[in-house]
Measured scan of single mutants.
Amino acid sequence: MPSETPQAEVGPTGCPHRSGPHSAKGSLEKGSPEDKEAKEPLWIRPDAPSRCTWQLGRPASESPHHHTAPAKSPKILPDILKKIGDTPMVRINKIGKKFGLKCELLAKCEFFNAGGSVKDRISLRMIEDAERDGTLKPGDTIIEPTSGNTGIGLALAAAVRGYRCIIVMPEKMSSEKVDVLRALGAEIVRTPTNARFDSPESHVGVAWRLKNEIPNSHILDQYRNASNPLAHYDTTADEILQQCDGKLDMLVASVGTGGTITGIARKLKEKCPGCRIIGVDPEGSILAEPEELNQTEQTTYEVEGIGYDFIPTVLDRTVVDKWFKSNDEEAFTFARMLIAQEGLLCGGSAGSTVAVAVKAAQELQEGQRCVVILPDSVRNYMTKFLSDRWMLQKGFLKEEDLTEKKPWWWHLRVQELGLSAPLTVLPTITCGHTIEILREKGFDQAPVVDEAGVILGMVTLGNMLSSLLAGKVQPSDQVGKVIYKQFKQIRLTDTLGRLSHILEMDHFALVV
């Protein structure tokens, strides 16, 4: 994948999101292997301009796509893939009243899908469409860049269908997702969380590099694949309309690839034109409109599966009536509230959605109805927002919020430890010299600072030695090549209790 991002070429006709291997024109390309080798690009942008032909009021008969309808489940399912879809609609009884809503608040519980998330729908649909058009064949390999849930859905379907599955996901995604993927037989590649989507090191860039190296491999490409919004247009939206008897006044959905909100909203605009569509985008993402909503100094966020630093091709923002931004604290607070007060075992993005819903639905009156999409299960986040310690460490809970008995030293300040200034190293000294210094002084790690004293990161003896043994660096290389740029900081005025929580999850903390 090139470091400079080429513009994806656009073909003359058809839909841009065809499933299957992508040609340089962004659509299915038939021909000899030699032709494909000559024409197939190194990668295709996940934010390529959409060429979708959908228009409100256009006859369904003019759609270029294969459409399906929700099917009634048999008493005995032939395999677990038949437990994807037909998820329950559940009334939220307490939270709406707590925040003064007059309307009825309903939750579409997508964590009841077989793999635990709304992404099971698009995973199965992308595979079925690729099999139907002859792209996927027995023994082929599926590769997908994902925040985890699409990966789980694909790995689940691949396990049943017999495909090899490789999932490329950023490091910030939970260990629970990784464990589930491994249990399903998927191979996992992790990428830096802070890598831009168009960087060769991003999950998108690495996935395309693997595709170019592995024979008979395919990126189904949830960011561009029409099967993504079509899955929701054909099934999720129809289920909502049936469950609500066609009567709903507002739908609120958090947005990642945009397939969920695009597919549902398009069908609702056709069948229930008075329904307002509300999009939820986390602070630090750029999906919301108008652009002024996205202006923030924050560039990272903890909530998973929603928000991006690019506009995915499948996201149709014209069908969203209003956007709201959400933050991590309210997302996790509301997710825990949904679990504790409503018994809905949902993930953090569901918290984002409901946090926005109780604001947006203030305009609705008694007798009206708001539906929220709860995308995934708490299963993926047992060591994250479900953990009091994690919430404390991230600053989303305060010590006084917890009532468990603490040891005698818990409320003492870090400054009472009488710490001395640490050994520091410059980023320009060599790895070999740094190892000598650390061994001589008896230290395992040291902060790396520039000549102005600005902290650049941390270097550890173990990481340097393993990097040297693996051949990633040489003793003569500058130590700046092996620094940890993500590390926890703590102030002298913070409590030892807070430091204790940090050290339970990290090997060190830097006192500043």
Rank of each mutant, 00 (worst) to 15 (best):
V10L: 15
A183D: 03
G85P: 00
L230S: 08
K94V: 03
Y163M: 01
V160H: 01
L156S: 01
P64Q: 06
R121D: 02
I152A: 03
Q7D: 08
P41V: 12
T235F: 15
G96M: 08
S3R: 14
V160Q: 13
V178A: 09
P138H: 08
K36N: 15
K83V: 06
R58A: 11
A207Q: 00
K83I: 11
R45E: 13
P41Q: 10
P78A: 11
G14N: 09
A157K: 03
T87F: 01
N93G: 06
K267L: 15
G139W: 07
L268R: 00
D133F: 02
R45T: 04
N225P: 00
E104F: 03
I122G: 00
V204I: 03
K72N: 11
R125Y: 08
I240S: 00
A231L: 06
R45M: 12
E4Q: 15
K102E: 08
E128Q: 09
L77E: 02
R276K: 11
G205P: 09
V118P: 07
S27D: 12
R224F: 01
I219E: 03
E270I: 02
K247V: 04
E62H: 06
G115A: 12
W208Y: 14
H232P: 01
S202W: 04
P170K: 02
F112K: 06
L77W: 05
R132M: 09
D129R: 02
K271R: 15
R18V: 13
E187H: 08
S175G: 06
S61D: 05
C244D: 00
V160N: 06
L106H: 08
T236D: 03
G185P: 00
E144T: 04
P12H: 12
L81I: 13
N216K: 09
C52P: 02
E9R: 09
K25P: 15
G11S: 13
E239Q: 10
S147N: 02
R91G: 15
S227T: 14
H17I: 12
H17C: 03
N228F: 01
P33I: 03
K102L: 08
S3P: 10
T13R: 02
I80Y: 03
H203F: 07
G259D: 00
E37I: 09
S117L: 03
S202V: 01
D35G: 14
D238L: 01
T141F: 13
M126Y: 06
N212G: 12
